[in-house]
């Protein structure tokens, strides 16, 4: 079908025929459509696929400002280096810890909020709560970071509240023990409202007759929630849970970068912040690229596995 490969005959008749064949082919007729793809494809190749190839510097010696693919092969030495680097295992643990806590504690919050919103009779109040709780989703992470630092500072509101209860001020932001709580709490603050959207949509899809039938059977509101509402949104819950498990390692890099400090590295430093410091601040690009590959492969495996499970279990998947 694709007749772009013109036969190399010398005869003018053949050449004309070949030309005509090219013009008639779908490739030629749609050249304007293909021309639309040129710039976007160039974008993907340059800014998405070239960096993937650029990870090769993990196996090569790279001099800042030199060839972006490095100069000479050095084998797996960078991988050996980070597998024996105690810092690496600390940030790995922290990544799993923060990601896991945010998932376990943060995941149910939007479900509960959606169920509570669903029980409201007043549409106006419902919309008011929704509009307010969606707001943090629209903020720059710099604003969120600034708010966290203000609230948790020695003269901030949290210490003010504790002070009125007779508790001495706590230097939250300098204390590694408090960092997970600050991180998870602020994640919930940012995402609880926005996370309700898909659940609320699923809630409107539940057949009204089911509620009626359960009422006839004598079910009270709590039993209706347990036996009708929750099973009704279960597919949404399972799908989102699996997808969240797939991405739980990708903790909020930018936020942590804004609110952590050397005093809290013990619990706050995660893979992405560590490779940022090692790579861009200290200039060990090859070593950081090796860590980056490790992180990306774990992420890919988790997402693929989650997608597979989701497809099998609830028939919903990313691809």
């Amino acid at each position: 079908m694709t007749s772009t490969a013109v036969a190399p005959e010398k005869s003018p008749v053949d050449a004309r025929r070949a030309k005509r064949r090219v013009r008639r082919s779908p490739w030629w007729r749609n050249w304007q459509l293909y021309s639309l793809l040129v710039l976007p494809v160039a974008f993907f190749v340059i800014f998405r696929y070239l960096p993937m190839a650029g990870n090769i510097i993990a196996f090569r010696q790279y001099v800042p400002g030199g060839n972006i693919f490095g100069n000479a092969w050095i084998g797996f030495s960078n991988f050996e280096l980070f597998l024996t680097d105690p810092n690496f295992w600390q940030v790995f643990r922290n990544t799993v810890m923060l990601g896991g806590l945010a998932l376990i504690i943060g995941f149910p919050v939007p479900i509960v909020l959606a169920l509570l919103l669903n029980e409201l009779r007043s549409r106006g109040f419902k919309r008011f709560v929704q509009t307010t709780t969606y707001l943090p989703h629209f903020l720059s992470v710099v604003i969120v970071g600034g708010m966290i630092l203000q609230l948790t500072s020695l003269t901030g509101s949290i210490n003010h509240l504790l002070g009125s209860l007779g508790v001495q001020p706590i230097a939250f932001i300098q204390d590694p023990g408090w960092f997970p709580a600050i991180y998870v709490g602020s994640e919930i603050w940012q995402t609880m409202g926005w996370g309700t959207i898909l659940y609320l949509a699923a809630l409107t899809q539940i057949d009204e007759n089911l509620y009626e039938a359960s009422r006839i059977d004598g079910a009270n509101r709590w039993q209706q929630t347990w036996h009708v509402t929750l099973p009704g949104i279960a597919p949404t819950i399972v799908t989102l849970l699996i997808l969240n498990i797939g991405t739980f390692m990708s903790v909020g890099f930018e936020k942590i970068l804004l609110i952590y400090n050397p005093a809290t590295y013990a619990t706050a430093d995660v893979i992405s912040t560590y490779l940022y410091r090692v790579g861009i601040q200290s200039g060990s690009f090859s070593y950081a690229a090796a860590i980056g590959i490790f992180e990306a492969v774990i992420g890919l495996v988790l997402v693929t596995a989650a997608n597979f499970v989701s497809k099998r279990l609830v028939g919903a998947s990313l691809w």
Binding site: W27, L50, P51, G54, L275, T304
Partner: peptide
């Protein structure tokens, strides 16, 4: 023609990214 290829080309980048360091270098 080749629609699936172009869509796939975009979707792959949602799953796997080159990462911070190579992008910075680039």
């Amino acid at each position: 023609r080749g629609r699936g290829f172009f869509i796939g080309m975009a979707l792959v980048t949602m799953l796997y990214s080159g990462g911070l360091i190579p992008t910075y270098v680039l």
